[in-house]
């Protein structure tokens, strides 16, 4: 076990933003931390990286607490903060050089290292340009590059793909995957995008309101839903009344309206279709499309919290 938290708690003004969290990361693993905005992901990361002290509990690195000896984790950690933390007035190259210097990378290898990282984030051609002229995606790539100069054994990325173009996003996902697969770097990847975590991470922790509500591999998490079905229906017309009536059907656990029809989670096995048709028709509407979906992590989250990730 590389990193382990024990009943980790952080409170601001008496409110537990991180609430007795237990989790671990093995060396070489790629772990996802998934949760909606405000779940407490960034705070958790700040405590693990020794930037802020926990209110209670402990963070251990190879079994030793880092609270008293933060130097141990700082040496092997590369952190990619949620907000872009760069000098916008300087070029991509100058930024990387600065972070290389404060990380005390030997001068003899620094130049080569910078070029290697610029290649990795796909900005070698534009290294002389000022960061403030970059697009959001390019800034995020430099932001990641700045955490890699000292070749950290573990990299923590805090929502590195928020608000950027798909191309940059793919580039970032590939970079992270490469770091993990080829260099054996341990990854803790935070996001509120389900797909990214599904793609990158072997193991996932789902966090909500400061607590870890579920954890495990993707299959393990999906098994949580083994007793439920997710059904999508389309109606020729919808209203809040119809949604309410559907909610009242006995086997229905959850109803909400998505971009693509009405989503219903119900107990497995019950033949819900006839009750659905009955309910909808009694409201003067008609079902135009009906399908049972394979559940996703998103559905797991919905099941656990009653909220969608993007609430």
């Amino acid at each position: 076990m590389m990193i382990e938290t024990v009943k980790l708690t952080k409170s601001f003004k008496g409110k537990n933003v991180v609430d007795e969290i237990n989790f671990y990361i093995d060396e070489g693993e790629s772990v996802g931390l998934l949760g909606p905005n405000g779940a407490g992901k960034s705070t958790t990361i700040s405590v693990i990286s020794s930037l802020i002290k926990p209110s209670a509990g402990d963070v251990k690195l190879y079994g030793k607490s880092i609270i008293k000896n933060p130097a141990a984790i700082r040496k092997i950690l590369g952190i990619v903060p949620q907000e872009i933390a760069l000098y916008e007035e300087l070029s991509a190259y100058e930024n990387l050089k600065f972070f290389g210097e404060i990380y005390k990378v030997k001068r003899s290898v620094l130049e080569e290292r910078i070029q290697e990282i610029l290649d990795m984030v796909g900005l070698r051609e534009r290294q002389k340009e000022l960061v403030k002229t970059f697009s959001g995606g390019m800034k995020r790539r430099v932001n990641i590059g700045a955490a890699l100069l000292h070749r950290p054994k573990i990299i923590i990325l805090d929502e590195p793909t928020v608000g950027i173009d798909p191309q940059s996003r793919n580039h970032i996902l590939e970079t992270v995957q490469k770091l993990n697969k080829e260099n054996g770097t341990t990854i803790l990847y935070t996001s509120h995008y389900m797909e990214e975590v599904e793609q990158l991470c072997k193991r996932v922790y789902i966090m909500d309101h400061g607590k870890i509500v579920a954890s495990g591999s993707k299959t393990e998490l999906l098994n949580i839903l083994s007793s439920e079905d997710t059904i999508k229906i389309h109606l020729n017309e919808t209203s809040d009344d119809i949604l309410k009536k559907i909610q009242q059907i006995e086997s229905v656990r959850h109803v909400d309206e998505t971009d693509d029809g009405i989503r219903i989670i119900s107990k497995k096995g019950n033949n819900i279709l006839s009750s659905l048709i009955h309910t909808v028709e009694s409201q003067g509407a008609e079902i135009t499309n009906y399908q049972i979906e394979t559940p996703s992590l998103e559905d797991v989250f919905l099941h656990l919290t009653g909220r969608t990730l993007r609430d």
Partner: peptide, 13 residues
């Protein structure tokens, strides 16, 4: 404000 300070804190300097 721009976060560079926190990054420096986490560095060896």
């Amino acid at each position: 404000a721009n976060g560079v300070w926190d990054r420096m804190i986490l560095s060896p300097i």
